[in-house]
Design a binder for these strands. Structure first.
Length: 765
DNA sequence: GTGGCCGCAGTTTTT
DNA sequence: CTGCGGCCAC
């Protein structure tokens, strides 16, 4: 290989003198530079110094990221292992590595490329002692975290009703997101929990984790930061190693991640952050849009590149999305420009459509899907994007009755399922006897007569002798403290686990796992269970055993699973996709259906109630994300009535519907809704059997003559109803007002009983 | 120790 | 209305 071959990086280390003499030029016709627009090219080739790439939806972000890494490696500015590339999900990391490998080959394998958490884990393993952990510490998932916290709370006699463990856990996690160790927590929000003992409990929780030689996800970052800040030589080492940093989805970073990046970038100052403030939708889990907004303050003189050419969507989709997001304040400001050309004859405006209720909405959407399918569109090119998980139900039902295949993305992940977590606990206990959490989880699962009393005394012995629960169990099984029955059960359990452990080195690990699940009676337990989902669980356990075959050892498997808890979705058949708007970020579809655009559903009532304008703007960004997923067409729907927790509620259209600009939108409504307004129309609608009947015949959905929004919209609070007034409601008929609270009325309906409804949906009789 | 009943809450999610 | 968690009674 020639000395100039950029792909020989693996074989020869470039001597420092070489690096000092300047990077090698990269041929301008390198394959990854082909077809880039000027802004993309700038983002790819401006390798030195800080740079912020503001990359709007559909502007080729992934292409730029991978090309930049390829460019970096080819320029020989740094060895692969001197380049750090950070993503948020394992999926994104894998995709990036695959794409870089396709461009430059084997060197891609040596990049420090991964999620914040996986990279931190890798670093922290080397310095674990500095934070009081063994290098073999385990990473707890959410379930274990909560269990540990509950134990701490119980020991401290905190009333779990007054202070729900979940709430405290959330507060602790937000503290960790902000890099607050227990000693740094002061008057932070949430500190008043548990009678003001939240901080103390946080400290105890941390102590307990250390005692278990474990860390939670937040600790991976927090501990790494602590290491960096407490040992200058360690920090110096990593700062020196990482000459080039690349960060994806920068708008989603939290304070801890931000500090981590800033520390690591300090020496070489070659940091490239890619993100889009308009797609920041994770502030509720600690992400700080502020990180992206202040980039140029942290790195003075930073280059800023805007990617605004959109290669995904039609001009109407871009126009609608842009106008919507323009309602937000404090943006860095980007304008998406169509980068593709479209035939003005066939390009569709985005559509909004009002329906009577959720059922009609599902019917409409599924009819549209069928119509598209008849036109030759693939089901997999269509997505129904909902605000919250419960909204999927009505669409699933309709799709099932219609016989269209679909896939709901984002159910419980494989490794989070109960049966998988139990099975994992067995494996963990066999692999590492000291794993107390695993022990507790399965010591009496399946039931073997070891209840709380038995477990309690194991705990006590463990604490007194300062040994693990497992060792305590072994001791107790030979003594007389326990009653005969539990003692026998425990002896059997101890013997079983001991036997499995003895097989660790001889039996293939997948086979061993199968043996454990069989001999423990765990599989049998589910087989005997007559819940409808039990057979599925047995299937999952088989899958787990199969998954084990992919790894060279049990230990390797367990290590891997802690961080990479993913859905391994099966082969993609041609199915309609249903998922949440959050889940859809980063994906794209030809046709996107956006149902439930109603006040209180979307924007979600809680988002507004909890964080006001901020919450509203995040909801609006979510709407923006939803619209910009579409390549060709968007249908926004909203219902006048919706059953929520089995209570019928009158719904107002989402304010986002109105924020869509006329120029790019075509509005329609089922007959009588919003179209004509007024009492007569409403009554006619109520009596019209067409409501619940099929609207088949395609456009039999009678389009309102007037754009819906030119009709006077009933204004909340304008009714001026008072107790005793007689009113009429579309759905519930006549009734008497019992009470009035702002725009909300409590009404005793003659036939439908007492309901709370918005006054805009009743009229005086 | 286990099974049943009552009471309450009920977005978004990755690691 | 449903599901989960906690408490109480066998």
């Amino acid at each position: 290989m020639s000395d100039l071959d950029p792909f020989s990086l693996n074989d020869d280390v470039v001597p420092p003198s070489r690096l000092a003499s300047g990077p090698l030029p990269v041929a301008p016709d390198a394959p990854w530079l082909k077809g880039l627009n000027p802004e993309q090219l700038e983002a790819v080739t401006s390798l030195d110094g800080p740079i912020l790439v503001l990359s709007g939806a559909g502007t080729g972000k992934t292409k730029v990221l991978t090309a930049r890494l390829a460019q970096l490696l080819a320029s020989r500015r740094a060895q692969p292992w001197q380049c750090l590339a950070v993503t948020f999900t394992n999926r994104a990391a894998r995709e990036m590595r695959d794409r870089v490998a396709a461009l430059v080959g084997p060197p891609a394998q040596d990049l420090w490329l991964g999620t914040f958490h996986s990279l931190c884990l890798r670093i922290l393993r080397r310095h674990a002692a500095l934070v009081g952990l063994g290098s073999d510490f385990t990473v707890l998932d959410a379930d274990d975290q909560l269990r540990v916290l509950k134990q701490v709370m119980e020991a401290e006699r905190i009333d779990p009703k007054a202070t729900p463990p979940q709430a405290l856990m959330g507060v602790i996690q937000r503290w960790k997101d902000r890099a607050l160790t227990p000693d740094k927590v002061a008057g932070e929000s949430g500190a008043d929990l548990a009678g003001g003992r939240a901080r103390e409990l946080y400290r105890l929780y941390q102590d307990r984790l250390r005692g278990l030689n474990a860390s939670d996800f937040g600790d991976l970052l927090l501990h790494t930061l602590t290491v960096f800040l407490s040992d200058a030589s360690v920090l110096d080492h990593w700062q020196g190693q990482f000459r080039y940093l690349l960060v994806d989805e920068y708008q989603d970073t939290n304070v801890a991640q931000y500090l981590w990046l800033r520390l690591l970038a300090q020496k070489h100052r070659n940091i490239c952050c890619v993100g889009d403030d308009d797609q920041s939708i994770y502030s509720w889990r600690g992400a700080e849009v502020g990180n992206i907004l202040r980039f140029d303050k942290d790195f003075p003189g930073a280059r800023v590149v805007r990617l605004e050419s959109n290669y995904r969507s039609t001009p109407h989709i871009l126009g609608a999305a842009s106008a919507l997001i323009a309602h937000n304040g404090g943006r860095l400001g980007k304008t998406l420009r169509p980068g593709l050309s479209f035939d003005p004859e066939t390009v569709e405006k985005i559509r909004t459509h009002a329906v009577w209720d959720g059922e009609a909405e599902a019917r409409l959407v599924v009819e549209e899907i069928e119509a598209l399918q008849r036109k030759g569109e693939r089901l997999a090119s269509m997505a129904i994007l909902v605000r919250a998980g419960f909204q999927t139900r009505e669409f699933e039902e309709r799709l099932i009755t219609t016989g269209l295949p679909y896939r709901v993305v984002g159910g419980p992940r494989f490794y989070e399922r109960l049966e998988i977590r139990d099975a994992m606990a067995y494996l963990r206990l066999v692999a590492s006897p000291a794993d107390g959490l695993a022990f507790e989880r399965i010591v009496n699962t399946p039931k073997r007569g070891l209840g709380e009393a038995a477990v309690q005394s194991i705990h006590i012995h463990a604490r007194e002798l300062d040994i693990s629960l497992w060792d305590a169990a072994r001791v107790l099984s030979n003594r007389t403290e326990l009653k005969p029955k539990p003692r026998q059960a425990l002896a059997k359990f101890v013997e079983d686990v001991g036997r499995w452990r003895s097989l660790l080195d001889t039996m293939p690990h997948a086979e061993l796992a199968a043996t454990i699940l069989d001999e423990s009676g765990y599989v049998e337990m589910w087989k005997a269970d007559k819940q409808p989902d039990s057979p599925g669980r047995v299937e999952n356990l088989k899958e787990l055993v199969a998954a084990l075959e992919e790894y060279s050892s049990l230990a390797e498997f367990l290590e891997h699973v802690a961080l990479v808890m993913e859905n391994d979705e099966k082969a993609e058949a041609d199915r309609v996709v249903i998922m949440t708007l959050h889940g859809a970020k980063g994906l794209e579809f030809d046709s996107v259906f956006l149902p439930g655009w109603e006040e209180e559903v979307f924007p979600h009532a809680r988002a507004l109630a909890e964080t006001g304008t901020q919450g509203l703007e995040e909801e609006r960004r979510l709407a923006y994300v939803g619209i910009t997923r579409a390549r060709k067409r968007v249908l926004v729907t909203f219902a006048a009535n919706r059953r929520i927790y089995n209570q019928w509620k009158s719904q107002l259209p989402s304010r986002f519907v109105e924020e869509l600009p006329e120029a790019h939108v075509e509005r329609s409504a089922d007959r009588g809704l919003y179209g004509g307004g007024g009492l007569q129309e409403s009554r006619a609608a109520w009596n019209d059997p067409g409501w619940s009947g099929s609207r088949r015949g395609g456009a039999a959905a009678v389009r309102a003559q007037v754009p819906a929004w030119t009709a006077p919209r009933p204004e909340a609070g304008s009714g001026g109803f008072k107790a005793g007034d007689r009113v009429f409601h579309d759905k519930f008929g006549n009734g008497t007002v019992l009470a009035s609270d702002g725009g909300k009325l409590e009404i005793a309906f003659d036939k439908a009983g007492t309901k709370k409804v918005l006054d805009s949906f009743v009229v005086a009789v």
